[in-house]
Amino acid sequence: MSEESPQAIRAEALESILIEKGLLTAKAVDDVIALYSERVGPLNGARLVARAWVDPQFKKQLLTDATSIVESLGFEGGQVEKLVVVENTDKVHNAVVCTLCSCYPWAVLGLPPKWYKDPAYRSRIVMEPRQVLAEMGVGLGSNVEIQVWDSSAEIRYMVLPVRPPGTQNLNEEQLAELVTRDSMIGVEVLVGVEVPGEAS
């Protein structure tokens, strides 16, 4: 007998049937997976963030009309009907959720993490954001206001994280490497970099 899970077998059966019917090819499925896991990915979002950190004009544009920017850059993946970028500051911390299902800005962040679809995150981040963020490693002072943005089919949100300290000498490309997916969902605060030679 096979050791595969019943669900894995059902998925395999479905794919075989659809291929047999000529509705699908295995290559089309492979291409989608490659697109979302390699080419789309959170790197697109990270590049937007890094550029906003070094270019005030771009930042202004990103915060007022991110949709046009994404369209003009031609990111693959679609599904950004309207993208709104919200800026984290030392006074306001933004976090993103989809309480209804799992709407997510794929074109800039790739595939959503597993916990994003979890009912616990989806309900609790709205009810007790400070507590949930603390559990995820983001301890915020009581003076920091938290705003939670509920994504929908029409509007997807992305967070512009605070530029971490100690990064004055980094260029845009180096900055983009620091930006994590979670920081753009708003469940991580980027920490400063250790300057080589100074860190032990």
Binding site: S37, G41, P42, L43, A46, L111, K114, E177, R181
Partner: peptide, 11 residues
């Protein structure tokens, strides 16, 4: 999956 800034999204 080889993601630059992400982690495994499929179990």
């Amino acid at each position: 999956p080889p993601m630059a800034n992400g982690d495994v999204v499929f179990d």
